[in-house]
């Protein structure tokens, strides 16, 4: 292990390491801690200039309650769910199929199609913006959740294919050959042999895509407007102009908007990190 394990060092080194970690963590999370502290203060603290002293009262429930009762926040959150979940299902389904095709079969153009997916996944959004907005308008999906979902599925298929194909490549190929010798049909190999082995990849991709899509802001403002279809990332700016300069409410609102992916991460940590770091180890 590198660096040298701390338990092999002197007692003093161990103690200073143990005290240093929490301090480093607090410094690292300082901006976030500040926002969390803002979000439980009453408005009077801000008018009195009491930004960093003890809160004059603990207003956690009032502030967070108002986020849900006095604004469009619940609608935006619900929109985010209705955009994110179908995208996750669609992108994972499509890319399991493309990944299977590119990972198992040898045919001309295999690598070319694979590289098309990778390259497309790295492209700047702005080169797609005008035509995609136009297309969405012309099929009548502008300012709908469906319009966003369709684009997200298509775009995420690039990254997901890269992921799935490499995962399938690492599976034992003998299993598939054995099934073929037995005369199993190709689509049954996909469904009954490969798919069950891909559960970890499916879980990892699902949490990753959930986070990516939940956090999307650019396409939300390009393809939608207003609380009918906009997800919470776009809604939060709306929320902030409603409660302008009321930092206790704006802080609470942002924390609410950020929570679902954070929750997802802490619940599915193993899969999340496995997905994010695929390829970081040979």
């Amino acid at each position: 292990m590198f660096p040298t394990p701390i338990e092999k060092r002197s007692r003093a080194a161990q103690i200073s390491y143990q005290t240093l970690i929490p301090i480093a963590l607090i410094v690292w999370l300082l901006p976030l801690i500040a926002v969390a502290m803002f979000s439980i203060r009453p408005l009077t603290d801000f008018t009195n200039g009491n930004y960093w002293g003890l809160p004059s009262s603990f207003e956690f429930f009032t502030n967070y309650g108002r986020v849900f009762t006095d604004s469009d926040m619940p609608r935006y959150m619900w929109n985010s769910i209705l955009i994110t979940v179908p995208t996750v299902i669609g992108a994972v389904a499509l890319s399991t199929m493309t990944g299977f095709a590119l990972g198992i079969y040898r045919f001309r153009g295999n690598l070319l199609i694979f590289f098309m997916f990778i390259a497309g996944n790295f492209v700047p959004f702005q080169i797609l913006m005008v035509p995609v907005r136009d297309l969405t308008l012309s099929v009548g999906l502008y300012d709908t959740k469906m319009g966003l979902v369709m684009f997200h599925i298509a775009f995420q298929t690039g990254f997901c294919t890269l992921f799935m194909r490499n995962f399938i490549r690492a599976l034992p190929f003998e299993l598939i050959e054995a099934a073929r010798v037995e005369g199993v049909k190709e689509w049954r190999i996909f469904w009954f042999v490969v798919l069950p082995l891909m559960r970890p990849a499916l879980a990892a991709l699902a949490v990753l895509i959930f986070t990516f899509i939940w956090n999307d802001y650019f396409w939300a403002i390009v393809l939608t407007q207003g609380p009918d279809a906009q997800p919470v990332t776009a809604g939060i700016t709306q929320f902030n102009s409603q409660f302008i300069a009321q930092y206790h409410l704006m802080s609470a609102g942002s924390i609410v908007a950020a929570i679902p992916p954070v929750l997802m991460f802490f619940l599915m940590q193993k899969h999340f990190i496995a997905g994010l770091t695929l390829g970081a180890v040979k």
Binding site: M97, T98, F151, A154, T157
Partner: peptide
């Protein structure tokens, strides 16, 4: 078989990513 498996994904990608470029 691989073509059938590729078709939906490639189609989506062509319409929403490659063609817009």
């Amino acid at each position: 078989t691989p073509l059938m498996f590729l078709l939906p994904g490639v189609l989506f990608f062509l319409v929403y990513v490659i063609n817009p470029i």
